[in-house]
């Protein structure tokens, strides 16, 4: 018997397919754009396989908690940290900066 990883779900039992459509939010489109722009020939930072590996490595808990583009940005960010595109410190500082700007503009965390 093969041991499956959590993303490898082909053939497993699951519920009814709910015909849910989706209007992509702007932030999701921008995550999509970041990933595409960082996987071009002159910017070979993220390949599709690497992105998927990064998503699979999020682990079962996080994988199921996050929605689709949250998984993408998590994986892409980890890969870019791994490759030294930016540092943990730079990212942390920038995230604090973004959050305080958003809060100043009246946005609230979910």
């Amino acid at each position: 018997m093969t041991i499956r990883r959590h993303h490898d779900m082909g053939g497993l039992d699951a519920g009814t397919v709910e015909p849910v459509e989706h209007d992509y939010a702007i932030w999701e489109k921008r995550v999509d754009a970041i990933v595409k722009l960082m996987s071009t020939e002159d910017r070979p930072y993220l390949s599709t396989d690497e992105l998927r590996r990064g998503i699979e490595e999020l682990g079962p808990g996080v994988y199921d908690e996050l929605n689709y583009y949250e998984r993408w940005i998590s994986s892409a960010t980890n890969l870019m940290l791994e490759k030294g595109v930016f540092s943990v410190k730079e990212l942390g500082r920038k995230m604090a900066d973004v959050e305080s700007r958003w809060q100043a503009a009246g946005a609230k965390p979910q």
Binding site: I26, R43, I73, S74, A107
Partner: peptide
């Protein structure tokens, strides 16, 4: 400030996405 964030609040990953985009632009990568 983005309308989708204004409407329903932001998550940590949305903050991360915005931060990554800004870092890549500041560094002249994109």
């Amino acid at each position: 400030y983005q309308p989708d964030i204004e409407d329903s609040g932001y998550t940590e990953r949305m903050v991360m996405a915005q931060a990554v985009e800004e870092l890549l632009i500041e560094k002249g990568i994109i």
